[in-house]
Design a protein around this nucleic acid. Structure first.
Length: 361
DNA sequence: AATCCGGGGCT
DNA sequence: AGCCCAGGATT
């Protein structure tokens, strides 16, 4: 056995946290834990794990569960597709596999929501299969130990890390080994300011020996900010002061679909989304619509760092566009008759005429 | 290979 | 603000 492997095992037995899913070999319990703790800190997810196992103690109870109840339990955890996939896969295992988990990596990975990491984790921890589970912690530990400078989120870097993870794997006790190296990364070989002077692996660690601990692992940088346009259609009523604005619904699903009174913006005005949100008229609108605020702030948080968000307004005369195709007369647009109007096509036509089609996408 | 999904903690 | 976390699915 590799000396590093032996050390990790020794270190783990001395330092491991007593976590609820570590005292079981139930693949269901291990599966739930692995999924909950994808991209989620232990402290953040542990109460969810307890709640979840309390509500659905075995796979049959989860398979029979109401989806809304599962999602409700998941509320606040994020990445809600995990909850959806969990339910889907529980039902599949019960109905197709008679409630019995597949035991090998390849078949586990076929299940929805189970990727390379989770498949390896379940196969090794629950079924003692010799699979190296590589998560963020393992990647960091290995990148430092072997001085891997290829970005850990590049194909090349991933392959190198995977190869070394497999070389380090303890085939006699793969489940313990995987948890050991993960725990070592989570508690000792931490991302920032690890305590290398008190590390039992410092003599073997290429990063420590070459003063690269603070620079490894490397990640590929995000691409430069892209311009994105949000186009607003302002409907002008020819014999009426009333004006309405339609917020275009984006196919990418990243902008609001709604209809508001919005009289103050001039046609062809351009501004950054940050400015728009601070506009007094728009502030009133977003205060009325909680979901709009949520979408705006969520979008900011996620995309502002590499996208520049711009809005543009344009006007179309009332009688050109605001007809009611079903009843063949003119009427105010509202939430209920919104779909009677071909706004998406009008916006597309406008963008084409203005030479803006595709711009900023 | 790039992008999206989310919330929270850390520096 | 930016980075990171016990990733996976989609394009």
């Amino acid at each position: 056995m590799h000396v590093i492997t032996r050390f990790l095992r020794f270190w783990y037995l001395q330092n491991k946290r007593d976590l609820p899913w570590r005292n079981t070999d139930d693949p269901y319990a291990i599966w739930i834990a692995e999924v909950i703790f994808q991209q989620t800190r232990i402290n953040q997810g542990i109460s969810y794990y307890r709640k979840f196992m309390g509500a659905f103690p075995h796979i049959q109870s989860l398979a029979m569960a109401d989806e809304q109840k599962v999602l409700k339990l998941w509320q606040g955890l994020g990445y809600y597709s995990r909850a959806h996939n969990l339910l889907h896969t529980a039902r599949e295992i019960v109905s197709v596999y008679q409630g019995v988990f597949p035991t090998d990596y390849q078949r586990l990975k076929l299940l929805k929501g189970i990727g390379p990491y989770t498949a390896a984790a379940i196969a090794s921890i629950a079924f003692n299969q010799p699979c190296a589970a590589v998560d963020g912690n393992v990647a960091r530990v290995i990148a430092r130990l072997y001085g891997i400078r290829d970005p850990m989120n590049s194909t090349k870097g991933k392959k190198k890390i995977q190869t070394m993870a497999e070389a380090l794997l303890d085939n006699n006790d793969p489940g313990l080994h995987n948890q050991a190296i993960m725990e070592f990364g989570a508690l000792h070989c931490v991302p920032l300011n690890p305590d290398c002077l008190n590390c039992g692996l410092k003599l073997y660690c290429v990063a420590f020996q070459n003063d690269l601990v603070d620079t490894l692992p490397v990640r590929v940088k995000r691409s430069k900010p892209k311009i994105r346009w949000f186009h607003y259609l302002v409907c002008c009523y020819r014999h009426n002061e009333a004006t309405q604005v339609l917020l275009q619904q984006r196919l990418a699903g990243d902008i609001w679909n709604g209809l508001y009174e919005f009289p103050l913006i001039e046609a062809d005005t351009e501004m950054e989304l940050t400015t728009l949100v601070e506009h007094p008229v728009f502030k009133q609108i977003i205060q009325d619509k909680q979901y709009v605020i949520k979408r705006v702030s969520g979008q900011y948080k996620h995309q502002l760092s590499h996208q520049k968000l711009l809005v543009r307004f344009f006007h179309i005369e009332f009688d050109e566009v605001c007809y009611n195709s079903k009843e063949n007369h003119v009427s105010l647009i509202n939430e209920s008759n919104l779909n009677d109007y071909p706004f998406p096509r009008l916006i597309d036509r406008y963008l084409t005429e203005m030479g803006l089609s595709g711009k900023g996408y």
